[in-house]
Design a protein around this nucleic acid. Structure first.
Length: 299
DNA sequence: AATCCGTGGTA
DNA sequence: TTACCAAGGAT
């Protein structure tokens, strides 16, 4: 009798230890799964949970979201971060209505063509919403495979084609089992094989882990210096957009001038927000979220 | 390929 | 307090 596969061990662990996340419940629509995946791009689960419920309560399907202006999507996005995702999710809803009769396609190529949907999200939808057999490679899976299989301390900074191949080879042949194994790998990476302090004592793969077997070698290669946030254009954009989000009507330039003292940087940040389609500039120095009515009294 | 894009919790 | 990190995508 041969050893059980990594996927089998991970799946057994998942059956006992998985979190009860609402987008994993049976009967959840592909649209709801897609919304969860987009919200989870770089945003922690605990912050996504209430936003996901509110979003789907307001827009049960792509057609409802596509019918509302971008301003509503940006407001509903709240403080999840990276608000361009809200814009792209609405653009995606429009594309689903126009190209796919308001449905989420069960096809990799069609999904990859949608705004805001990349290699990870497309395969996650196919696996988790449609039960198809695809490698689902996120930061958790990259890290888990790097350690358990490659024996490295950490994965590279971005997903590479080789990561897809290495992960696909771990999956069982049966599509439904493969999808479940992908969820299990992600959950193991998120809860046990964590970035900073992996809980190897609780890991079902510990006896099979190449990184543990080689004595937990330290990470090799250059450590990229962290992205700062304070003082960046991103912070200024965040401050500007927060005012637009929280103000019911139009906002005057005078009001926006209050959020950041550096005139040059503030103007640059506002200009890029307009370029990105997150803010609309009207005549006489008045700004709104895109699609919002500009003619009430500016604050 | 490297950089940009928000926000908040944690050690 | 600072630095890291969180189910990435677009350019």
């Amino acid at each position: 009798m041969s050893e059980p596969t990594l996927a089998a061990v991970a799946t057994r662990w998942y059956d006992e230890n998985a979190r009860d996340l609402p987008w994993r419940e049976p009967g959840v629509t592909a649209w709801a799964v897609l919304v969860s995946e987009v919200m989870l791009q770089q945003t922690p689960v605990v912050r996504v949970l209430p936003a996901w419920h509110a979003w789907l309560s307001r827009w049960p399907g792509p057609a409802e979201l596509a019918a509302d202006p971008p301003a509503e999507a940006i407001r509903m996005w709240g403080r999840l971060g990276y608000p361009r995702r809200a814009l792209r999710l609405r653009d995606c809803a429009v594309a689903l209505v126009e190209r796919h009769d308001g449905t989420v396609p069960a096809d990799l190529h069609a999904l990859l063509a949608l705004p805001g949907v990349g290699d990870y999200t497309a395969r996650a939808v196919l696996a988790f919403a449609y039960g198809q057999r695809h490698p689902v490679v996120d930061t958790n899976v990259r890290r888990l495979v790097a350690r358990a299989v490659a024996g490295a301390a950490d994965a590279g900074p971005s997903t590479r084609p080789a990561d897809l191949v290495a992960t696909e080879e771990l999956l069982p042949p049966e599509p439904a089992a493969a999808a479940r194994a992908s969820a299990a790998f992600m959950e193991l990476g998120a809860l046990v094989c964590t970035a900073r302090t992996p809980r190897c004592v609780d890991c079902p793969l510990a006896t099979r882990c190449a990184w543990l077997a080689s004595g937990e070698p330290a990470p090799t290669g250059p450590t990229r210096r962290p992205q700062r946030y304070a003082g960046t254009d991103r912070q200024v954009r965040g401050l500007l957009l927060a005012v637009l989000r929280e103000t019911p009507g139009p906002v005057s330039r005078d009001r926006l001038d209050l959020v950041w003292s550096d005139d040059v940087q503030r103007a640059r940040a506002l200009a890029t927000l307009v370029e990105d389609g997150l803010v609309t500039s009207h005549s006489d120095a008045v700004y709104t979220l895109p699609g919002a009515l500009p003619h009430t009294q500016p604050l």
